[in-house]
Simulated assay, not measured.
Amino acid sequence: MPAYALTKLLNIDHPVLQAPMAGGITSPGFVADVSNFGMLGSIASGYLSLAQVDRFIDQVQAQTTAPFSVNIFVDYDDYGQVSLTKPKEIIQIEADLGLDVDDCFIIPPPPSMRNLIALLIDRKVPIVSTTFGLLRDEDVAALKQAGIILMTTINAVDEIDDALRTQDSDILMYQNAHAGGHKGGFSDDGHSDVIAFCAAMRRHPDKPFIMAGGIVTRDDIEQALKQGFAGVQIGTAFLATKQSAASQAYKQSIIDATDAHATISTTSITGKSARGLKNHLAQLAFKYNMGFPHLHYATAPLRKHAKAIENPDYQSLWAGTGVTRINEIPELHDYMQSLVK
């Protein structure tokens, strides 16, 4: 499907989506600026309470009348609020760094999917994207009834038919192996390579597909469009702008990443597979990996401390393989302008 079909569907000027990066990397002003430019700004609701999501949406809507999306982690499990003991490896690192923190951590209960869906409908969010799972039939129906555009993240060819059948997806987001951050699909399948995915994509000419992973420049966008994608999603290059809330150590690590093997896929930060820059935390070996979201909250105090003191060794430095082609930290507007010249 051509790019103009995507821009018409989303009511945007340029077929470029800002990746929904959770963890406080983007602010409401950042998201609004992307949307005001004519691209699609994205709110990441992951790890936020219902009140925090509501406040984020409110602040974005106060700064733009342009479309934006909200990304949700699809999770119907009821964790409750539980307190657990941190892995010994994390406790030892915290002790070595002189942190005076508890050896236990709390997993806060996430918003129920029902309440989150109801909030998005109530706030008239125009576009919703999903990560990590498939929505239940009743939630898909509620979003569709509200006229909300639904975008599903997939990693593999075999996920296409499942997404279309169960989600009635308006848009499919193909996140390839080059993408930074968490592997966002809903199956245990690995990443399909681009050639195989493009062949499968052509069997659905009426459905817009978006490429995510390894997109940094205007030339990258043009290449994706030539391959048949209707648009692209960009993450790493957006967080490597002056307006992102990434730490200076994080941004400097991006600039310093010139080696082709600068990034790795790791489960050692949140318990779920994600691609980021190599550092001590990403390469930490656990005797027992607690999994997601447990390890995310177990490592949170360490990562917060590392960010505060500008220590890149123990931050979550999510980045895609395109990081090697980022050699400056531009103004957000200047970067977006470079994509549309």
Score class of each variant (00 low, 15 high):
7 T>R: 06
9 L>S: 07
19 A>D: 00
23 G>C: 07
24 G>E: 06
25 I>Y: 12
27 S>R: 07
35 S>N: 12
36 N>Q: 14
39 M>F: 15
43 I>P: 00
43 I>K: 02
44 A>D: 00
47 Y>M: 05
50 L>E: 08
60 V>W: 12
60 V>F: 07
65 T>L: 12
65 T>C: 03
73 F>I: 12
81 Q>M: 03
82 V>Q: 15
85 T>Q: 09
86 K>A: 01
88 K>A: 10
89 E>P: 09
90 I>R: 00
95 A>W: 02
97 L>S: 01
103 D>T: 12
105 F>I: 00
106 I>F: 08
106 I>D: 14
107 I>P: 00
112 S>E: 06
114 R>N: 13
116 L>N: 03
126 P>S: 03
127 I>K: 04
127 I>P: 03
135 L>E: 05
138 E>T: 07
139 D>Q: 11
141 A>D: 14
143 L>G: 14
146 A>D: 05
151 M>D: 08
153 T>H: 06
153 T>E: 02
156 A>M: 01
157 V>L: 05
162 D>I: 06
166 T>C: 08
168 D>R: 15
178 H>K: 15
182 H>Q: 05
184 G>F: 04
185 G>V: 09
185 G>Q: 13
186 F>Q: 13
189 D>P: 00
191 H>N: 14
201 M>F: 08
203 R>F: 06
207 K>Y: 11
208 P>D: 11
212 A>T: 13
214 G>V: 12
216 V>A: 10
222 E>G: 05
229 F>C: 08
229 F>N: 12
230 A>H: 07
233 Q>V: 08
237 A>F: 05
239 L>A: 14
240 A>T: 14
241 T>H: 10
242 K>Q: 15
251 K>E: 12
259 D>R: 15
261 H>S: 10
262 A>T: 00
266 T>V: 08
266 T>C: 11
267 T>Q: 14
272 K>A: 13
273 S>N: 14
289 N>F: 09
290 M>W: 03
298 A>D: 05
299 T>E: 06
300 A>E: 14
301 P>V: 09
304 K>N: 13
305 H>C: 08
307 K>W: 03
309 I>T: 15
314 Y>H: 02
318 W>I: 01
320 G>L: 12
321 T>F: 06
335 Y>E: 13
341 K>W: 05
